[in-house]
């Protein structure tokens, strides 16, 4: 008997389905576009991304949301492929947070 993937939810007990509408903010739209672009360019494929999402910590998956999963999965994949240095990314992220502005980000 194989082990169930954390993403394999079909038939599991669950509560109410959230019905509020969600409107993506601008960075989320850009993030999805970036994701699609990397995919178009053959830098990664959908199944690789799905594998990254499946490999996140089970507890984290339960509380994670769709957009953060997409961002974090894409980052993990680029790191795995040697295209991104996680320390460099984190340093850049902290710098942007400290500056607190979107202005000088390309």
């Amino acid at each position: 008997m194989a082990e169930r993937l954390i993403t394999d939810l079909g038939g599991l007990p669950a509560g109410a389905i959230p019905r509020e509408e969600y409107h993506m903010v601008f960075w989320e739209k850009q993030m999805i576009a970036t994701f699609n672009l990397l995919w178009d360019k053959g830098i990664f494929n959908l199944d690789e991304f799905r594998r990254m999402v499946e490999s996140i910590d089970a507890e984290l998956y339960k509380t994670s949301n769709f957009y953060r999963r997409r961002l974090d999965g894409m980052i993990d994949l680029l790191v795995e492929k040697g295209l991104l240095d996680p320390a460099e990314l984190e340093a850049r992220t902290q710098r942007i947070l400290q500056e607190g502005t979107r202005d000088h980000v390309p």
């Binding site: 961002l71 980052i75 460099e88 990314l89 984190e90 992220t93 947070l97 980000v105 390309p106």
Partner: peptide, 11 residues
Amino acid sequence: GEARYLALKSL
């Protein structure tokens, strides 16, 4: 999340 995306994009 947004800062992390902006950092990713610029890199």
